[in-house]
Design a protein around this nucleic acid. Structure first.
Length: 586
DNA sequence: GTGACTG
DNA sequence: CAGTCACAACGCACA
DNA sequence: TGTGCG
C-alpha cells in the first residue's frame, strides 16, 4: 500500500490555472500543478522537476488523486458524486436537455448522489440548473443530502465520502463556469476506490482482459475482470507469464491460482467489478488468503485502524460479531447523527446476548485515541462521535446504544420522547394504536413527530425541539398533558398509573421516563434480543396491523434504508419548525 | 472484551 | 499464572 | 430497610 503524500493546499490560486499544491518531498519544496490531464512538477522558480521526482510523476500516471486533501473551505467546490455509469452528467455535458434519462438513472441508483449543496453567489447557470435538479430527486437522495448537511462543519469531504461509501467526489474550480461542448480542466473527479485482493485466473488475448477470482470455501469463484491500470512493463510481464504457464482455449489463457493482485473498483455486482483498475501485485499473499470473506470486508471499506478480535464469535443465536460489525459500518452514516453529540451509555455482551452483560458510560483508559470523550466534573464519558468509535465499541461487543435527551454540556433537552411500552409483547398493537392517537394529537398542534420501534416490546415517538427552547419542567408538563389526553380517550387501554397492580395490563404512558439523566435506545441500535431486532425508525404509514418489532433484524436494515431511505432524515429540519409556544401552553 | 488486581 | 473482578445508577416493586 | 429488577 502506498503512503499518501503530505500535501498542503496553497492559499492563493492563480485564476485560469488548475489546482496548485506545494509539496514537501525528500526535503525539497515542489510546486505541483495538477489537472485532469496529469501533473506538472516545478521548483519554486519554475524549473521542471518531472525527471527528478519520478515517484510523483508516477502518481500522476496512476491517477489516484484520492490522496489529495480536499477541504470544504479550500478553493474547490464540491458538486456531487455520481456513478459514472448511471449518472453520466459529466460525460454528457451539454446534454442536460436529456433530463428524462438522467432522472431515470437517478431513480435507479439514487443512493449514489452525495454532497451537492454548496452554491455561491457566483454560481454558474449550470450550478443552479443542477440545484434545481437536486430539489426534485428521489426521497432517498435528498435524505442522504440532509444527513450529510449535519456533518459539514467539521468533517472533510473525503471523510464524508468514505463514511457514506460513496463513489467519490466531483469538484470544480470555484470560478469555473460551465461550458457546453468543452471539456474543461477545471472539473475533476475523485474516486473512492475499494481495493480488493484476489488472484488471476484468465487472460483473454482477444480483448486484453484479466479474469480475477477468490475462494469461497474451497471453491474458486470469479469476481470480475480488469484491463486497465497496468504499466506497459507489468502488462508485458503478465502476458508472458500467462503464455508460458497457462493453458489456452480459444483466445483465453487460464492459470491455476498463483498470482495475487489488488484491484481497485467501486463495487462488485453480479460477479463483476465496476470500474476496475489494476492496483498492484501482492506477492506477499497466497491465493488461499484471497477469500470472498476478506473481499467482502474490503468492499465494505472497514477502517484498517480499528482492530477486530474474535470476529466469528456468535453474539446472537444466528449472528456473528463479524456480521454485526459490517452492519455498524454501513449503518454508521444514518446512526451517527443521533449519537455524536450525546453522552453515551452502551450495554456490552462480551460473550453474546445470553451471557452476562454490563453497562458502560465512562471512557476506559485503554481506549484508542480516536474514541470520542466528554470531560465533565472530573469524569470522562464516552462520546460516539465518529465511525471508528462506533466500530471500536462494536468490537467491544457493545450491542445497545442509549443516549440522554440532552446534548453533552447542555442542560435542556433537544428532543421529547414518548415511550409506549405495552405490558407484554402480545399487546404490541396497543402501542401501535397509542402511537397513532398521539400522532393525531400532535398533528393537530402542528408538531412534527417521528416513530420508531424500540426493538423490544413497544414503540417510541420522538419530537425534536431546538436546544434551549424548553426546559425539562416544560417538556414534562407537555408529556403529562398528552398522556392525560390519551388516557381519557381510551381508559381501557392506557394508564398513567405508576403502581403496577393498578395498571391491569394496560399500556403505561411513562412520561416520567422523559427526564434529565434518563436515557433511551438510539435509532438503529440493535437490541440484545434473539431476533437481533433494531430500534428501527419507521414511516408513519408503516404502523399497520401486522407490524412486529421482530420484522426488523439488523441483517435486513441496510437494504431497508438504502431502498426506502431513513424515516428520520428530516429530524434536524423539523426541530427548527416546531410550534414551541403552542407546546408550552398546552 | 480487556486490563487490573489477587492468591 | 489462573482466577476473579469491574465496567451505571435510579426509582420502584416486592419482601 | 433491604434487595432485586428494569
Amino acid at each position: 500500500m502506498k503512503q499518501p503524500m503530505k500535501l498542503t493546499m496553497q492559499d492563493e490560486l492563480p485564476l485560469g490555472k488548475d489546482w496548485v499544491y506545494e509539496v514537501k518531498f525528500d526535503g525539497f519544496r515542489v510546486i505541483l500543478t495538477w489537472s485532469i490531464d496529469g501533473i506538472e512538477l516545478t521548483s519554486r522558480n519554475g524549473k521542471d522537476l518531472t525527471e527528478k521526482f519520478p515517484e510523483i510523476t508516477e502518481l500522476a500516471a496512476i491517477h489516484k488523486p484520492e490522496h489529495l486533501p480536499l477541504k470544504l473551505d479550500g478553493e474547490l467546490v464540491i458538486l456531487n458524486t455520481a456513478y459514472q455509469a448511471n449518472f453520466p452528467l459529466l460525460q454528457q455535458r451539454g446534454r442536460l436537455r436529456n433530463e428524462k434519462k438522467i432522472m431515470d438513472a437517478a431513480e435507479k441508483r439514487p443512493a449514489t448522489f452525495i454532497a451537492f449543496d454548496i452554491l455561491h453567489e457566483e454560481s454558474s447557470p449550470y450550478d443552479r440548473r443542477r440545484a434545481d435538479l437536486v430539489e426534485r430527486l428521489t426521497p432517498l437522495t435528498t435524505d442522504r443530502l440532509r444527513i450529510i448537511d449535519s456533518f459539514h462543519e467539521e468533517e472533510t469531504v473525503q471523510q464524508l465520502v468514505f463514511l457514506h461509501l460513496a463513489e467519490g467526489i466531483v469538484a470544480k474550480h470555484k470560478q469555473s463556469a460551465y461550458n457546453y461542448d468543452q471539456r474543461s480542466k477545471q472539473w475533476i473527479k475523485f474516486k473512492n476506490w475499494r481495493t480488493i485482493p484476489c488472484f488471476l485466473t484468465t487472460y483473454d488475448e482477444a480483448n486484453d482482459y484479466y479474469g480475477c477470482a477468490v475462494y469461497v470455501e474451497d471453491e474458486i469463484v470469479s469476481i470480475g475482470k480488469f484491463k486497465h491500470g497496468l504499466t506497459s512493463d507489468q502488462s508485458d510481464t503478465l502476458r508472458t507469464f500467462f503464455k508460458e504457464n497457462g493453458k489456452k482455449e480459444a483466445t483465453i489463457w487460464s492459470l491455476p491460482p498463483s498470482v495475487c493482485v489488488e484491484v481497485d473498483c467501486l463495487e462488485v455486482k453480479d460477479k463483476e467489478f465496476r470500474e476496475p483498475l489494476f492496483h498492484d501485485f501482492r506477492f506477499d499473499l497466497s491465493p488461499e488468503e484471497c477469500t470472498y470473506l476478506s473481499a467482502e470486508w474490503d468492499l465494505a471499506m472497514f477502517p484498517t485502524n480499528v482492530e477486530v478480535s474474535n470476529s466469528e464469535k456468535m453474539l446472537w443465536p444466528e449472528q456473528s460479531k463479524r456480521n454485526y460489525l459490517l452492519y455498524l459500518r454501513r449503518i454508521a452514516p444514518y446512526m451517527l447523527p443521533f449519537l455524536k453529540e450525546k453522552k453515551l451509555t452502551v450495554i456490552r455482551y462480551p460473550d453474546g446476548i445470553e451471557a452476562t452483560s454490563f453497562f458502560q458510560k465512562h471512557l476506559p483508559d485503554h481506549a484508542p485515541g480516536y474514541v470520542g470523550a466528554w470531560g465533565e466534573s472530573g469524569e470522562t464519558y464516552l462520546l460516539c462521535s465518529n465511525l471508528n468509535t462506533l466500530l471500536w465499541l462494536g468490537n467491544q461487543a457493545s450491542i445497545e446504544f442509549h443516549t440522554p435527551f440532552q446534548k453533552a454540556g447542555g442542560k435542556d433537552p433537544d428532543e421529547i420522547v414518548f415511550d409506549l411500552d405495552p405490558p407484554n409483547s402480545e399487546a404490541f398493537q396497543v402501542a401501535v394504536l397509542a402511537a397513532k392517537l398521539l400522532k393525531h394529537l400532535l398533528d393537530e398542534l402542528g408538531v412534527q413527530s417521528f416513530v420508531k420501534t424500540s426493538g423490544s416490546k413497544g414503540l417510541q415517538v420522538h419530537i425534536p425541539i431546538p436546544e434551549g427552547a424548553m426546559t425539562y419542567k416544560e417538556t414534562r408538563r407537555f408529556t403529562e398533558s398528552l398522556a392525560g389526553l390519551l388516557e381519557r380517550e381510551r381508559p381501557d387501554l392506557f394508564t398513567t398509573e405508576r403502581l403496577k397492580k393498578h395498571r391491569k395490563g394496560r399500556l403505561y404512558l411513562d412520561y416520567v421516563q422523559h427526564a434529565e439523566g434518563k436515557t433511551i435506545v438510539a435509532p438503529y441500535s440493535v437490541r440484545a434480543k434473539a431476533s437481533a431486532a433494531v430500534a428501527t425508525p419507521l414511516f408513519w404509514h408503516e404502523l399497520t396491523d401486522d407490524l412486529r418489532p421482530e420484522h426488523f433484524p439488523f441483517h435486513k436494515m441496510i437494504e431497508r434504508v438504502e431502498t426506502l431511505g431513513c424515516p428520520f432524515s428530516h429530524y434536524d429540519h423539523a426541530r427548527k419548525e416546531q410550534p414551541i409556544q403552542t407546546m408550552k401552553t398546552l
